[in-house]
Nucleic acid binder design. Structure first.
Lengths: 226, 226
DNA sequence: ATAAATCGAGCGAACGTTCGTTCGTCTATA
DNA sequence: TATAGACGAACGAACGTTCGCTCGATTTAT
């Protein structure tokens, strides 16, 4: 039996044997994309399997060849999104040593991923408690790793320079995550200011709020990605 | 017919004529409290009327003497919470002229209300899109007023002192709301640092991030409420 | 080479359950 | 006696899921 092993896109090329019109993985991704859009629009509970099937262009029963349950569908969406978010962050953090630069990279990459996958990140932010059992545990573990990477940057920031005296580092980290995870409620990259503008402002405000130093000007105008 | 007029607690005393064991308003508030808890725990869609009835100690059909629909129940929860949040803020802002003090008051009062009504604020933050039609419009209007009060404080902050050069004020406001509205995901006032500690840190970080000046020490250790 | 068997993919139809809501009735109070 | 409050029972609709089947392509056996 197939029963999707959830690897988050090791390499997009050469993923399947068959082709011509839609391999197994391609069809799975297609359905997952439709499901993500439906769940982002209606929420997990109200996005029915019938809606997803209609949007994906398959029958209701056909869905169950790819996912043994609705919850597993949500799990795959969250697992892949969180996974690639975390992998991408670790990758982009390689070779960056200054904690201030690291935090700017974190904010910039988070917003870049948000802009490229708004639906998926909305589902990730809004449906954190919709999974149960081991599926919940697995996504929680990834989220905690993502938190840990960010938290360690903040630790280094406050250890290096004194910063404010009595700063609870958990509160500081969650304040930043609050700003980032709330983006899906109001920010539309196609309408508002550019992704890099918002990313720079959020990073500047956070760094200045944490350390009390003005934003370094050399980073503020840097583009998002080469 | 009664059909609840939604006034958000003009004065808690002398609200009804009858008493002895539960007036109409008292029973309505009792049910609303149970509904708030259930919706905070399970989410609006998964919190069934049967669950609410059981938690409130009334029959399923008995609920419909107080609310003509499930959606109206959610509306009343949100309308009252947003309404008292806004009214309380405006009240506490009276006589406070310095914009920095105003922002500290806003953050402090928001956290105080959060600590006192965690379930209601969770429902308000998490179920923003669960209302439809005029019910949605009405809560959106209140939310926009709440935004406006905060936004005007931030405008005054940036107009008075220069602050950073290119600050998008909408982005700055939503960054703060993100931090505040995300609280329900991680902060438990009974376990973590005190409400005033968290409020002071959030306000300090935000003010310093916006204006680039260290936090004024006289306000940082002030208690939450007399 | 051809027939038989196997398999993946997909579908219509239905299953049992749960949902929000309504109806008719009972009861206590005024 | 009239009325507000509360209830059990039931309604139709929608839900996630499963069942039995079909249709091609691929593999195996003859």
């Amino acid at each position: 039996m197939h029963q999707n092993e959830h690897s988050f896109d090791p390499h997009p090329t050469a993923s399947a044997i068959t082709d011509s019109r839609g391999s197994y993985d391609e069809r799975l991704n297609h359905i997952l994309t439709a499901a993500t859009a439906a769940m982002a629009r209606l929420g997990y509970a109200k996005a029915s399997m019938r809606e997803v099937a209609k949007a994906a262009g398959v029958s209701l029963a056909g869905l169950y060849h790819y996912f043994d349950s609705k919850e597993r569908m949500l799990f795959l969406i969250q697992f892949r999104a969180f996974g690639s978010l975390l992998n991408n962050l670790r990758e982009k953090l390689c070779g960056v040593d200054d904690p201030q630069d690291q935090l700017r990279v974190m904010v910039r990459e988070h917003l870049a991923y948000f802009a490229a996958n708004m639906g998926a990140l909305k589902v990730c932010s809004h449906e954190l408690d919709s999974l149960t059992g081991s599926a919940y545990d697995e996504t929680r573990d990834i989220r905690y790793e993502y938190y840990g990477v960010t938290r360690r940057i903040i630790d280094r920031l406050l250890d290096a320079r004194g910063g404010m005296a009595h700063t609870d580092r958990h509160v500081a980290t969650m304040a930043l995550f609050g700003t980032l995870n709330w983006l899906y409620r109001w920010y539309d990259p196609r309408r508002g200011p550019s992704v890099s503008t918002v990313a720079n402002q959020i990073a500047d405000q956070f760094l200045q709020g944490l350390l009390g130093v003005p934003a370094s000007e050399n980073e503020s105008t840097q583009e998002t990605v080469p």
